[in-house]
């Protein structure tokens, strides 16, 4: 299953709720303001690092760059994708759940 998060974890609990329900082997894509959860040094870093042990986490590069954030500051283990990669993720997973 692919979970998508489009809200900053500092604004809503979408990321936390998503990670509460996402199972081992699932994939999570951070995009739009959701990308703010992907960086080193935030209070969500340990949550992300912990989740990476059992889940795949991706971040959408165009949304990272649009916001002046740096892909080289993304937490180790998070993979970067572009829109084509986003499409591939939806193909590779049977269902897509948007945590709006």
């Amino acid at each position: 299953m692919l979970h998508t998060i489009n809200k900053s974890p500092f604004e809503t609990n979408s990321l936390e709720t998503c990670l509460r329900f996402a199972r081992a082997g699932h994939s999570v894509l951070l995009f739009e303001d959701g990308i703010y959860g992907a960086f080193k040094g935030t209070r969500f870093e340990s949550l992300i690092t912990d989740s990476l042990k059992s889940k795949n986490i991706y971040v959408l590069v165009p949304d990272v760059e649009a916001r002046g954030m740096r892909t080289d500051n993304v937490i180790d283990g998070i993979k970067t994708v572009d829109y084509a990669g986003f499409v591939d993720l939806t193909v590779d997973n049977k269902t897509v759940q948007a945590w709006l």
């Binding site: 489009n6 303001d33 829109y83 499409v87």
Partner: peptide, 19 residues
């Protein structure tokens, strides 16, 4: 909101990949 932009970019990328 960015939703419409994201949906557009996703749709365009999917079509360009032949979906």
């Amino acid at each position: 909101h960015q939703s419409s932009d994201s949906a557009y970019q996703f749709t365009k990328a999917a079509l360009e990949k032949g979906h």
